[in-house]
Design a protein around this nucleic acid. Structure first.
Length: 335
DNA sequence: ACTCTGTCTCAAGACGCC
DNA sequence: TTAATTGAGACAGAGT
DNA sequence: GGCGTCC
């Protein structure tokens, strides 16, 4: 029953995606993620359970469901094995595209900016088909909009919860921003919060049985200063030590690999290789235009709020008497 | 009223023909 | 050698 | 734009 081919989806993806980028003036550098940090072990095991469940349901669907269901499930279940990884690297090598392997990639949103990346592009991986527009976040603009310096920005991000420290419950985007604004720096904020907590505890002590929860509590151990140092001086290989060369593709090698070994259409492969060498050789390049459809919303929203999307969240006013709305556990609507 | 958090859901390739 | 992700949005509910 | 094909 299987459609047995389809063993090269990953290569197809890399091949065509890369070509598309190159055509549009992007010189990609692939970063292969090493192992995830153990910090997340707990979370991972939790997800494992969920996934297992999902898989079981998938199995079930396989028997009762429609063809689309099966197909869909199959796509989710594709394993990325080491072979796939190696093949991808081999492919990139033949294409003349550099790549590196890293072992700690906490690269998310603002975290990335804290590492002084000047520009952050989000949603790049969403093919243009999706409605999600690509957004560009410029560090300088962001700082300007926040009226902050880099130090404050880093501290703000730490307050919001970076991957390396427990987030402080009760402090979200708004409060964090406000706190930093009011106190000027994270040290003062922490001090302030600790004092507050202490005061409440004292008050509670008198009454004994009163409410225990004293507002926002900063964890005992909260080495934010170290985190900050880490952001300022990340433990990375200096750029100059990394080899990043974009070279001409090895056409025959590609043909050998993709056509002979993987059964790709030779014309397509050669055509792709042509594009690669053409665009990689010509120094000049078109801009990003054309790679994405349009970027309707630009960010220059001065005021505060560098985060563009935030405003949404309109509560659904019509939530009348919807009784147990929230209790729907994992009731998957299966067909 | 507003803010924050937790939980859940959804989808993820690329091309080309019509 | 396996297992395993990511990001976004919506919503409900508890906290202040 | 939706849908079949690529492999």
């Amino acid at each position: 029953m299987g459609i047995k081919g389809l063993t090269s989806l990953h290569l197809m993806g890399f091949f065509y995606r890369t070509i598309r980028m190159v055509e549009n003036g992007i010189k990609p550098l692939y970063v292969f993620d090493g192992k995830p940090p153990e910090l997340k072990a707990g979370v991972l095991s939790k997800r494992l359970a969920l996934r297992k469940e999902a898989q079981e349901e998938g199995e079930e669907a396989k028997e009762t469901g429609t063809a689309e269901d099966v197909d869909r499930f199959a796509r989710r279940t594709v394993k990325v094995t080491r072979e796939h990884n190696e093949e991808c690297r081999r492919l990139l090598g033949l294409m003349g595209i550099p790549f590196v392997v890293v072992y700690a990639a906490g690269s998310e949103d603002m975290d990335t900016l804290t590492f002084h990346a000047p520009v952050l592009l989000r949603h790049l991986t969403f093919s243009e088909a999706r409605k999600t527009p690509i957004s560009e976040i410029n560090l300088d603009k962001a700082l300007e909009g926040l009226e902050m310096n880099m130090s404050q920005f880093i501290e703000l991000c730490i307050l919001l919860g970076c991957d390396y420290l427990e987030p402080i419950k009760g402090v979200g985007p708004k409060s964090a921003l406000k706190l930093i604004r009011e106190h000027g720096n994270l040290g003062a904020v922490i001090e302030h919060l600790r004092e507050k907590t202490a005061a409440k505890e004292d008050a509670a002590k008198d009454e004994d049985g009163k409410k225990k929860k004293g507002g926002i509590v900063v964890p005992e151990e909260w080495p934010w200063e170290e985190a900050k140092k880490f952001f300022e001086h990340p433990d990375v290989t200096p750029a100059k030590d990394v080899e990043v060369d974009w070279t001409s593709p090895d056409v025959e090698g590609l043909v050998q690999f993709l056509v002979t070994e993987k059964g790709f259409n030779e014309d397509r492969v050669r055509k792709g290789a042509d594009k690669l060498s053409k665009f990689l050789n010509t120094k000049q390049q078109g801009r990003l235009d054309g790679f994405f459809t349009a970027k309707p919303k630009t960010e220059p929203k001065k005021g505060k709020e560098t985060e563009k999307g935030k405003k949404g969240t309109k509560r659904k006013a019509d939530d009348k008497d919807k009784k147990d709305a929230g209790s729907s556990k994992k009731s998957k609507t299966k067909k």
